[in-house]
Design a protein around this nucleic acid. Structure first.
Length: 260
DNA sequence: AAGGATGTTCAGCG
DNA sequence: ACGCTGAACATCCT
């Protein structure tokens, strides 16, 4: 689930539930999800408050009253869940912060690909992870710049977090469907017009998805998400959606709509 | 019930 | 040094 629009929703959710409350406990059911020793999380979070969040791509940074910034990545199956009663703790809430008001912030993570870390600087983190500006804020100039010297498929490029932070597998398919570009189109063969249409589609997909709270069923009828499965019917051409692998990732596209 | 999964990282190769 | 590929990661869901 969590690509840029989902994580944006998580940010809004956390902002409206979990800020400005003293942390009374840091609970960890599986230390593999922590990039630093559990003792560090206790030392830097206990008795502190979350004060502000910032999202870059799929990463969420939580500034605290303490000396460190808490970073979360939701992996493939993560989401936050704020609750009060112990019986409501989610089954896969492997990490959790408890607050003075008796509520808990659970970090649900079914497949355990998500993690927490503690860092000093968002700018340093962004640089060391080679993250581009968040795709929502990215300029066409920077986007186009990233294509220089690359010889691979367009889908791989837009999923590259150093090109457009926040774009993941479903968004990449949606963006290419909206821009009528074939996922294995080599970027070196793309015209400026092609690149701009991908860029514009990316912006559109991001905003539409955020407006609809990443709830795919509410997306416009013309969005691939409604028929993003093998053999489903393309809204525009009536042809069958095809499934292929691009850069190791399952990819859905509409053959006549997105011609090579 | 085996295979696939919306992500990231890293080793290995050219 | 850089870009690309494929595997690994841990585990649940279909």
């Amino acid at each position: 689930m969590p690509e840029l629009p989902e994580v944006q929703g998580y940010k809004t959710y956390i902002d409206s539930t979990s800020l400005h409350q003293r942390i009374t406990e840091v609970d960890c059911r599986d230390t593999k999800l922590l990039k630093k020793p559990k003792a560090d999380f206790d030392a830097y979070l206990y008795n502190q408050e979350l004060i502000e969040t910032q999202r870059i791509g799929k990463y969420l940074f939580l500034k605290t009253t303490g000396k460190k910034i808490l970073v979360m990545h939701f992996g493939m199956t993560g989401r936050p869940h704020y609750y009060k009663n112990e019986e409501d703790r989610p089954k896969f809430g492997h990490l959790e912060l408890s607050f003075e008001n008796g509520f808990h912030f659970a970090f649900e993570n079914k497949r355990k690909f998500g993690w927490w870390d503690l860092i000093d600087s968002i700018a340093d983190f962004k640089a060391s992870h080679k993250l581009s500006d968040d795709a929502r804020d990215l300029t066409l100039e920077d986007f186009k710049q990233s294509f220089n010297g690359r010889k691979t498929d367009i889908k791989k490029i837009i999923m590259d977090q150093s090109v457009a932070a926040g774009v993941g597998n479903w968004m990449a398919d949606e963006i290419l469907y909206q821009s009528k570009i074939h996922p294995t189109k080599k970027v070196i063969e793309m015209t400026d017009t092609d690149i701009k249409s991908v860029f514009d589609a990316m912006k559109k997909v991001i905003e539409v998805a955020i407006e609809n709270h990443a709830h795919y069923k509410d997306f416009p009828k013309t969005f691939l998400m409604h028929f993003r499965k093998e053999g489903a019917t393309c809204y525009h051409t009536g042809a069958q959606i095809e499934k292929i692998k691009v850069g190791g990732r399952t990819t859905y596209f509409s053959p006549q709509w997105q011609e090579l």
